[in-house]
Computed example of a mutant assay.
Amino acid sequence: MAQLRKIKASTLMETLVATVLIVIVFMMASMTLNALFANTVANNTHEVEQELLFLRYLYENGQLQLPYYDELRDWEVIVEAREWNSNNQVFFSAEHLETKKKVSIKL
């Protein structure tokens, strides 16, 4: 028969400490990724920017009556004409109802 070599094994306490350290590292990484993802989702204004561009397109083609007010999920959308330095300008703006973040386009 072949003779088996002795392999040095770790103790139960060393294994438990290593397991706890691995769990802590993965927990910290998970919390960091969760915070990054939540921040990205909260600052995403792509949908409302697309809505403002669509309203601009409608206005340029004479299909939008001013003033225009609407809500898009948590955003309040306003399109209105204002006079600025003797020029009539059309402002397309959206404001988030909770965070008060604003997105606007001037025409």
Rank of each mutant, 00 (worst) to 15 (best):
K8D: 07
L64P: 05
L55W: 02
S86V: 04
I22D: 07
L72M: 15
V77Y: 01
N61T: 15
E71K: 05
E47Y: 07
N43P: 02
G62K: 11
I78E: 01
V20H: 07
G62M: 10
D70N: 11
M31V: 14
L33D: 10
K100V: 06
A18F: 00
P67M: 06
T40M: 14
N39L: 14
G62Q: 11
V23D: 07
I7E: 13
N61M: 14
D74Q: 07
V25W: 07
Q50Y: 11
N87K: 07
H46Q: 13
V17I: 15
E76N: 08
H96D: 13
K6L: 11
M27I: 08
A29V: 08
L55C: 08
V48N: 02
S30G: 14
V77I: 09
E76R: 00
P67Q: 09
L21G: 08
T19M: 11
S93H: 00
E14L: 10
N43V: 05
S86L: 00
E98C: 06
S30N: 14
Y68W: 03
M31P: 04
S104F: 06
W84L: 08
E60H: 13
V77D: 04
I22P: 03
N85S: 10
L66P: 04
P67V: 05
V90L: 03
V48H: 00
S93E: 03
F91C: 05
V103A: 03
E14Y: 00
Y59W: 10
L66D: 04
E14P: 02
E71A: 11
P67A: 12
F37I: 10
L66R: 08
R56W: 00
K8I: 07
Y59V: 01
T45K: 12
A35I: 10
R56F: 09
T40S: 15
N34H: 10
Q50C: 14
Q65Y: 03
V23R: 02
V90K: 02
L53V: 02
E83S: 11
Q89A: 05
I7D: 13
D70V: 02
L21S: 15
L66G: 06
E83C: 05
W84N: 06
A9D: 11
N43W: 03
Q63W: 05
T15S: 13
S104R: 07
H46S: 14
M31S: 14
V20T: 13
E76L: 06
Y68F: 13
N88P: 01
M28G: 08
Q63I: 06
V103H: 01
R5A: 13
E95G: 03
R56N: 12
L52G: 01
E95K: 00
I24A: 14
L16N: 11
N34S: 15
T32V: 09
Y57R: 12
K100S: 13
A81P: 00
V25C: 15
W84V: 04
E95H: 00
W84A: 08
K100A: 13
G62F: 11
A29G: 15
T40D: 12
Q89W: 02
S93Q: 05
T40F: 12
S30W: 03
L72D: 15
I105N: 02
R82Q: 08
S93K: 01
Y57A: 12
V17S: 15
Q63E: 15
I7L: 15
L53K: 09
W75D: 01
M13A: 15
S104P: 00
N39D: 14
L16P: 09
W84P: 01
I24R: 05
Q63G: 10
